[in-house]
Design a protein around this nucleic acid. Structure first.
Length: 761
DNA sequence: ACTACGAGACTTTTT
DNA sequence: GTCTCGTAGT
């Protein structure tokens, strides 16, 4: 036991060994939050205070749940398989499956992901003859989920105007359609579970009695319904151990309520709040910057991170003339870090919004740096995979109209919109599913044969599902549905076929892992919707990591590049008019900064292409909130003179970029503590080398002038898309300067100087 | 019934 | 710039 508790700091130890009371742990970034959670569970079990079955631990992501489980297994010689550690949705699903009758759900109920939900809403709108321009499916989903996440059914929603009343009607029709089809959306999973427990006293008693210890991760991210769910399960005698960080609450836009942390203290009579403030991740300057920024927020529970790791290096700030230059700077720095021995895997490139990744990717690609972008389409969300899954869903439940509409004519088999409409009418008329309508009320016509083919296909699959293994079933679906041959004839179908093969793989893997599951098909489909697939392909190879700041939450890297630090981008324009908007953006900035272990770069661009339009930016207020003594500004060598002409007297000099980076002085030590600036670089980073913000701004404007460009009339140039050409004229000045180039293959083009990615040829 | 082209949108996101 | 959606044409 002492083994388990050794190496914990006093606060961590206190949290881990707390008796059976409700408690709140304010865990700052990098303060060992997951460690505390898992060690507490291990300690409770080892000391005999709890049995593995008596613990309920809830997280937000599958990844977090998995990490907790793995760590726990390494601490204790127990099998975590039967333990209740999982996401809110995963645990609710488990409860609903166990008590499907009480929850009034079919045993085979399916879970809709966001895309499925949207198409379900579309079908509702159609059947109600509602204009989907006025009631956009996306917004309807938002409305429905928003209500459910507050614990509200359609009849609980207050409607004071005609529009909302109509929305409520659609809400009702949608829920009825879902019930009829035996499907539940994500929010429904939680609400249904909440209602199941609150309406069934013996059942609730049973679980209250069982879960003596409830642990909640990322408490600041809980929404109203999740909070009520926890309260319900805990009752008046339960003990809830909440861990969270109000400064890292960045999901307000999807219903998370930081206020739940305050309410928790009150509602659960929390006697003491334990603060974990010692940070084991970042060097001092990085933490100081994070603390300085977050101090500007008013509504905080209050917390200050510290470290004994030493100051480390200053933050590096780069002001680029435009987005391409910013990207180029990052490429050069990454290359240099890589040369020094830092693995690309340990370097992250963060941005506020996904749209920003393109320019960066472009430069990385040209430079031949391998990188991986997080947060695109996940495996189970891919079109071809969803199609195959729809066939599986029909095999499990032929009355699943969503799955039916998805694949009734995919691959195309001659069933057009007209026929589907007729089917829909027949189904409405007879109050049955589309499949039943197709079987019993098939309208006579040309498409009858095609429909017959489809019906027998699904019937065949249904029969196969009884006898075949999961893997064989997937293989059969891919073949017999002609998905495979369809994609084979498609130009870019190779990748899709690969993904279908990967689905076969996933099915085999699932079977292996959940051997003996009585309903493997249902289990697999649930797995597919609940775990949209962190099937991280190519995780093994060394690649730079690109992601949004949101996606980076919970991760850490040796070096972090935070790009696009401009007003309007970060903080984002759309956040400004939201309540608490700026504070949430600032928390996001805090999250971004605290991702870095040893080195942090901040960059912004004077102009960048956004939505196909140039947009001129001003440095983000968040950069200004970082004390300048923690920062060093980096300037391109050819501009040092320009910048220095603005700084007078004691202001000192800027650094030419090549004097930076600790190439010879200091450097990266892969197995050591990382960057250890030596004397030489300490000199380089001395305090006199700063410049005022105003000079910075003015200098940047100067350097953006067109006469700084390296081209002359008659010069041969190269363009990524247009190929070779010759410069024939210039036009305009300042940021609007344009260059006329006569290309060999595509004729004369007039390009914006700033964006034309021209190179001398 | 299917394909091709043009208009309009576009913060962040897990389940 | 790029993706999705809707309409018009084959």
């Amino acid at each position: 036991m002492s083994n388990l508790l050794s190496n914990l700091n006093p606060e961590q130890l206190k949290a881990v060994t707390l008796p059976r009371v409700s408690a709140l742990v304010l865990a700052g970034a990098g303060s060992g939050k997951t460690r505390v959670l898992t060690t507490r569970i291990a300690h409770l079990i080892q000391s005999g205070q709890a049995s593995p079955a008596g613990i309920l631990a809830v997280t937000f992501t599958n990844k977090a749940a998995r990490e907790m489980t793995t760590r726990l297994e390494s601490m204790l010689p127990i099998n975590t398989r039967g333990m209740w550690i999982g996401t809110f949705h995963g645990l609710c699903n488990r409860l609903l499956r166990a008590h499907y009758r009480d929850a009034i759900l079919p045993q085979t109920f399916q879970i809709l992901d966001s895309a499925d939900q949207q198409s379900a809403v579309k079908r509702v709108l159609k059947s109600m003859n509602v204009d989907d321009e006025k009631f956009k499916p996306r917004e309807m989903c938002w409305f429905i989920n928003g209500a459910k996440e507050q614990g509200l059914r359609y009849k609980d929603v207050e409607a004071h105007d005609e529009f909302t009343r109509r929305q409520v009607e659609i809400f009702q029709a949608y829920d009825e359609q879902c019930q009829k089809e035996g499907v539940v959306d994500f929010a429904e999973l939680l609400l249904r579970c909440y209602e199941l427990l609150s309406r069934n006293a013996p059942l609730l008693e049973h679980y209250r009695d069982r879960f003596k210890f409830i642990l909640v991760d990322e408490f600041q991210d809980t929404n109203k319904l999740q909070y009520r769910w926890i309260r319900l399960l805990a009752g008046t005698t339960g003990a809830v151990f909440g861990v969270g960080d109000d400064d890292q609450s960045v999901y307000g836009f999807r219903g998370a309520e930081v206020g739940n942390m305050r309410d928790f203290q009150h509602d659960f009579h929390v006697q003491e709040v334990i603060k974990l403030e010692q940070n084991y991740r970042s060097h001092g300057s990085i933490l100081d910057a994070a603390n300085a920024v977050i101090k500007h927020n008013q509504a905080r529970l209050g917390k200050n991170l510290w470290t004994d790791a030493g100051k480390g290096e200053p933050l590096r700030i780069f002001a680029a003339a435009n987005d391409n230059e910013e990207a180029q700077f990052i490429v050069d720095e990454v290359k240099s870090l890589h040369r020094e021995g830092m693995r690309l895997n340990d370097i992250a490139l963060l941005y506020r919004s996904n749209a920003q990744s393109r320019v960066l990717e472009h430069s990385l690609f040209r430079a031949g740096l391998s990188y991986r972008v997080y947060g695109g389409l996940r495996f189970f969300e891919r079109q071809e995979v969803k199609h195959a899954l729809a066939y599986m869903r029909l095999a499990a439940n032929p009355d699943d109209d969503g799955a039916f509409t998805r694949v009734v004519n995919f691959p195309p088999r001659g069933i057009g919109a007209r026929s589907i409409e007729q089917l829909q009418d027949a189904a409405n008329m007879n109050r049955c599913s589309l499949m039943q309508a197709a079987k019993s009320f098939m309208p006579p016509g040309r498409s009858a044969a095609a429909l017959g083919t489809f019906i027998s296909l699904v019937d065949g699959l249904k029969a196969s599902a009884e006898t075949l293994t999961l893997q064989e079933l997937v293989e059969e679906i891919v073949e017999r549905s002609t998905l495979k041959s369809h994609y084979q004839s498609e130009r870019e179908g190779a990748e899709r076929i690969e993904n279908l093969a990967e689905l076969t793989n996933a099915a085999a893997l699932f079977n292996e892992e959940y051997e003996g599951e009585d309903k493997p098909l249902i289990g697999f489909l649930t797995h597919a919707s609940l775990e949209s697939g962190e099937h991280e392909a190519g995780q093994g190879d060394d690649a730079l990591q690109l992601m949004t700041v949101h996606a980076a939450k919970g991760l850490e890297f040796d070096a972090v590049f935070l790009s696009g630090l401009e007003e309007g981008l970060f903080p984002h324009d759309n956040s400004m008019n939201q309540l608490d908007g700026i504070e949430e953006e600032r928390r996001l900035m805090y999250v971004a900064i605290t991702r870095a272990r040893k080195r942090l770069y901040l960059s912004y661009a004077g102009s960048r292409m956004l939505h196909g339009q140039p947009r001129y930016g001003v440095v983000s207020r968040f950069v200004d909130e970082i004390p300048s003594e923690l920062c060093k500004w980096i300037v391109l060598p050819e501009r040092v003179a320009t910048f220095n002409s603005y700084s007078r007297g004691s202001q000192g000099d800027f650094f030419a970029k090549q004097d930076w980076g600790g190439r010879s002085a200091g450097g990266y030590h892969p197995q050591g503590t990382g960057y250890a600036p030596k004397t030489e670089s300490e000199t380089v980073f001395s305090a006199k080398d700063t410049i005022s913000k105003q000079d910075m701004q003015r200098a940047r404007f100067e350097t953006s002038r067109p006469d700084a460009h390296p081209f002359g009339i008659g010069q041969n140039v190269m363009h990524a898309k247009f190929g070779e050409g010759v410069v024939i004229n210039f036009e305009g000045s300042g940021l609007d300067a344009r260059i006329h180039v006569k290309f060999r293959d595509v004729g004369t083009k007039i390009l914006a100087m700033q964006y034309a990615k021209l190179t001398a040829a």
